[in-house]
Every structure is written in structure tokens, then in C-alpha cells.
Design a protein around this nucleic acid. Structure first.
Lengths: 342, 342
DNA sequence: GTGAAAGCGCTAACAA
DNA sequence: TTGTTAGCGCTTTCAC
């Protein structure tokens, strides 16, 4: 950090002490192979003895870019994003990169400010998890000349790591169909959220594959995908004939629904089987452990960093943008067991 | 970010275009008050037109320190820490500082590497949330000349923001004592964790204040403060006469305990009242909403940044280290309601 | 394998 | 109020 007093030792001081030139000191640090073993050892010893800390600001001033990458998420306290952050920091550590965390709260203005800040720091690039589907924003950033990797969302003109939500929706629906041998109901968020639309598409695909009419799918749409919304859905479900299965496109909704049903004495999974989506902490800890779709969040963050680094390393004219799509998996627990058990 | 191609415009280009000197451009950016309104406006217009992005690397090379602060947490995917991170980023944004996120996984070696990295970037300082009580590590860091603010732990030789866990323990215990008019049992983590020791101290204090013998406090200690451990505690509790109240020093333990008790048909809160600690998301979402102690996590992160900035700003000989201690509050929910209701 | 030297883009005296 | 200028500490040709 800013050593207000000391920290006055730089390459020069080390060079003098070791009896070499500053170029040699720089080389032992950045291209050890180009320095003879003997000198290298001597220089390294002096560096350790003098407690020399290289100044990356100077290096990046010269080089033009910093060993820093930005991570822009809508809400770091949301476990989905914080798990991605864990993946990102792990990969960054491995490559000796620093991660600048930006919490946009999904405020476009704030996000813009933050990307501006990243640009001022000459960050090597930015990993962004966009919540809204507003592509204008993203292209504006890209036109800024930024190396951008999108997380959890594909992009036509850049790299991205995402999850196959259509597959996820299909897995969930398939499981319900197979274990109950009957139709199920879908509880979903707004279709304007690509993930929600995709999960629905997957659910419909499963219906088709099972020889059922996808248009027969009954769907409840909620504004906020929260536990409370799930509880309310229970009430609405009870107004009609109870379905034998429900696929909620997120875990909180599913947990709320289970609570709402329990309140009315409806047995899960005997009477109604429930499948969630996301496999966040509460899923396993629920009173009735939740069958859900696991998203490889950590891998998402990890891969995004690798992608970003590859994009930086490759020569600009060589680089082809690519998309890594991870496959989610079904985690079977008590709320919707494998076999039909009524 | 690293604009591989463009980004070649610097102060000089802007200065030329605006017909002023680079010093004036620098001044309009850093000390607007020293520039005449007319020139300022003109320069600003040119900056916008040319899409000039100042290079902080150059600035910090000159200044010696960067508008960057490090945040070192044991595990960013733990909601306690991610909420702190939210507070930190919010405050940092306000002051136009960037936050470098370091996930130490509580590995001392990694933590050291990360602080080294922060030093290389000439970060203005670091906010660290230490998990273990190992003070040697911390003093080593401090001796590095680093501005360090501890979060969630007091430190004799530096600034810190923390929570009064003794008070928290007292609040929880008092509530149990008053609402049940009977003794309670304590389920705690290892005493080597200062927070656990403090919460216990608070619980004992409440006992004394109520005219009871603190040494009569029955305590169960668990290694991992998880839901599973809570479930197990339920079994152990059932071996003896059931207490009328249980204070778990974290929410997960409490939730597990409730689940374990439910499994045996024990009614909460009628038969046993339960109080948790932390007020993380699962507390409110539990089947029986959990009475718990709320920790001002966001405020903790927020205050740490302010403290850090104050420490940087003040002249070194003026600065007196200080500790901000936040008061937790009791959140009363169904698992332990206010009035005795047996 | 090693050294000398030219900046990278900016800030902060100091001069005007 | 504005301009001139000397570095901040490092990387990187290019000689040796």
C-alpha cells in the first residue's frame, strides 16, 4: 500500500545493492529465463532483503495496461453472484490478477461510472453480469474498446460464459413428468428475463418430447421471484384442482410455495412434487430438501476469467469471440424424488 | 480498459485541442476551483468530445498512491461477508475509490500474497476481516506500512469497525429469560472464535443481571456452526429434560435445531423458544421465522471505508486510531415471541 | 547475459 | 489564472 514514509526503494536501489543494472533487476522479475542463474539468485536475495515491492503503477504506465480485471455484478450479496465472484477471484489469484469489484445494483448510470473507473485504471478488461436485457448499454461499452466478457448471458459480438437454461428447464420438467406421469404447473418470473424465457422453453420442450401438447402448460408469472411470491402462489394453486407437480424457476419461489402448501396441510412430495432452480444454500437446508437444478456458478466465474485472459493474450486479429455454455444438472432431493411414490 | 489501439490521447492532446497547457487540463480535473469557469467549460467540452480517459496509473505513479482499497474476506460467498462487501463498495463508489476484492479462504499464505499484491498496486489501504485470532499475521501486515482497518474484530494498534457481540449475546439471553421466565441452554461455536466467546459472555451477563448464577449456564459446543450441527444438537437436547429456551450463536445452528426438534414433534416456540444470531436471509424465511440478533453488516463495511479514508487524509502525526463498535439489535419473530405463551 | 537510455501520462512546484 | 518543467518507477529497444 501507500507506504507514506518508506517504500522509497525502487529498481535502482536494488540494482545498486546487487551490483547490476536496473534492466537486469526488471528482467529477473519479468523474464527470469533471460538472466543467468547466478545473477538471478543474487538479485532475488537483495529484493527479499530490502523488502522491495515493485510498483505496478509504473509498470502499467509503461505497458499501457494493468493486471487488474473488473467484475460488475448487479448485487454482490445475492448468493448467485457472490458464488460467481468466488470463481472469478480464484482464477484471478491463479494468474496473479487483481479483481476490482463493482456492485452496480443494476443501475445503468452506476454501471457506466464503474466501467469508466475501470477504464481509468486501465484494467485489462471487465467481466459483466447484466441483469436487464438492455443491449444498447453493452454495445456502448464494447465500443469503448474494452475487453468485455459477459457472464450468464450470451452476446453476439463478444465472448461470454453462460448456462444452458433451456436444458435446465428441460431437466426439471422431464423429472416431474417421469416421476409423476402427469402434467405439472410452471411458476415463472417475467419473460423479459432471458433466463426465465429459456427455462420455460425447456419445460415446453420436455412436454413435447413426452408426447404432450406444450400449449397445455399452465403458467403462473410473478413479478418478484421471492419466497413471499411463492407463498402467494400456493393460495392461487389451491383455488383450482391441485397439480401433482410444480416447477418453480427459482429456489426461493419453490421454498415459499412449500411453506404455503404446508400451511394448508398439503403434503410434499406425496400430494405435490416440487422442483426449484439454482441450488442455492436454502435449497438443501429447506425443511423438505428441495429437488432443484444446479447451476455451475463457480465455473462460470472461473471460465470468464480464462476467456478474458485468452482474449488479451491472443493477437487482436487472431481472436475469435466465443461462448462457453455450461450444462446444469438436476439435484434430486426429497421435494421431488426420483420414483413416483403416491 | 486497455484500449490496445486508441487511447493514445492524453493530457497533451486535450490541451492542444483546447488551446491550453496540460497543467490546466490537469487542474480542471483535479482542482476545478483553481481554473476560470470559462476555460474549465472549454476543457471539459474537449475532454468529452475527444473521449479522453485519464490514466490513473500515471497519476498514482506521481502521487505514490492509488484510489484503490483492498477488501480481504475469508469467503465472499458467505452472506455475512458479501453484505459487508456491499457496504464497502457503496462507500467506495461514493468516494470514487475502486475496491480490489481478495478472497483469502482464510488461508494465511494466500492472504499474504493478496496483501503483497495490494502493496504492488499501491492501494491506499486494506480492509480485512480476519477469521482466526492469529494476531502475528496482522501485525506483520501493519509493519509493512500499510493502512489497515480491521472489520468485525478490534485491534489494539489500529482502526477497526466491529459489532458489540457481548451486547448481542446479552440481548438474546435477556429475551429468553424474560419471555420464558426460566433458564435457557446455549449452543455455541468454539471459544477460540472471539465472537463466540463474546456472545457467551453476554449470555452470562444476562443471567447475572437476572439474579441467576452464570455458572449454571449449560452450553453445547459445536465445531462447525452449520445446519447439520444444529440438527444433531436437537438429538442431544432430547436425551435430557428439554430446556424451555435455546440461544444458538448463529442462525444456521438455530435453523437446524428447529428442524431437528420438528422431526420429533417438539413445538417451537410453545415447548422450546429459540433465538439465533446474525439475521441472515434464512432466518426470516425459515418455516417458523426465527427470532435473532441483527448485525449491521452493511454499516460495518461502510464505516470501515470512511475510517480508512480518514486515516489516509489526516496527517500521520495527527491520526489517532479508533474503534467503531456497532450495536446489534434483537429481531423478534415467531420462534421466540415477546410474551410468555405456553 | 547485461547495461544505457528513452519515454509511458501525469502532478506539483515554480514562474510568469 | 495559466504555462513550463522535472521527475514518479518501470519496461524495453538497442548496443555491447
Amino acid at each position: 500500500m501507500a507506504r507514506e514514509t518508506g517504500s522509497r526503494i525502487g529498481l535502482l536501489a536494488v540494482a545498486k545493492e546487487a551490483g547490476v543494472s536496473i534492466a537486469t533487476v526488471s528482467n529477473t522479475l519479468n523474464r527470469p529465463d533471460v538472466v543467468s542463474a547466478a545473477t538471478r539468485a543474487r538479485v532475488l536475495a537483495v529484493i527479499a532483503k530490502m523488502d522491495f515491492v515493485p510498483n505496478t503503477a509504473a509498470a502499467s504506465l509503461r505497458r499501457g495496461s494493468n493486471r487488474l480485471i473488473g467484475l460488475v455484478v448487479p448485487d454482490i450479496s445475492n448468493p448467485f453472484y457472490s458464488e460467481i465472484a468466488r470463481g472469478v477471484t480464484a482464477a484471478a489469484d491463479r494468474h496473479r490478477y487483481g479483481v476490482i469489484l463493482c456492485n452496480s445494483q443494476d443501475d445503468p448510470d452506476r454501471e457506466l461510472d464503474q466501467l469508466e473507473m475501470l477504464a481509468e485504471h486501465r484494467a485489462a478488461g471487465a467481466l459483466v453480469v447484466p441483469l436487464t436485457a438492455d443491449n444498447r448499454r453493452l454495445s456502448r461499452l464494447r465500443s469503448l474498446g474494452t475487453h468485455l466478457v459477459l457472464i450468464d448471458r450470451e452476446s453476439p459480438d463478444g465472448c461470454s460464459t453462460s448456462i444452458d437454461d433451456v436444458l435446465g428447464g428441460r431437466l426439471a420438467a422431464q423429472h416431474l413428468l417421469e416421476s409423476r406421469d402427469a402434467d405439472f404447473v410452471l411458476v415463472n418470473g417475467s419473460h423479459s428475463i432471458p433466463q426465465c424465457a429459456d427455462r420455460r422453453t425447456g419445460a415446453r420442450a420436455a412436454l413435447s418430447a413426452a408426447g404432450r401438447d406444450p400449449d397445455s402448460l399452465v403458467e403462473y408469472e410473478v413479478d418478484d421471484m421471492t419466497t413471499e411470491a411463492g407463498v402467494e402462489i400456493a393460495e392461487r394453486l389451491l383455488e383450482k384442482e391441485l397439480p401433482s407437480g410444480v416447477f418453480c424457476t427459482n429456489d426461493l419461489l419453490a421454498i415459499g410455495l412449500m411453506r404455503g402448501l404446508a400451511h394448508h396441510g398439503i403434503a410434499v412430495p406425496d400430494r405435490v412434487a416440487i422442483v426449484g432452480y439454482g441450488d442455492l444454500a436454502p435449497a438443501a437446508d429447506a425443511p423438505i430438501p428441495l429437488t432443484t437444478v444446479d447451476q455451475p456458478k463457480f465455473a462460470l466465474g472461473n471460465a470468464a476469467v480464462e476467456m478474458m485472459l485468452a482474449e488479451i493474450t491472443e493477437k487482436d486479429d487472431t481472436h475469435r469471440h466465443s461462448a462457453t455454455v455450461f450444462r446444469p444438472t438436476l439435484v434430486v432431493r426429497d421435494s421431488a424424488p426420483a420414483r413416483k411414490n403416491s
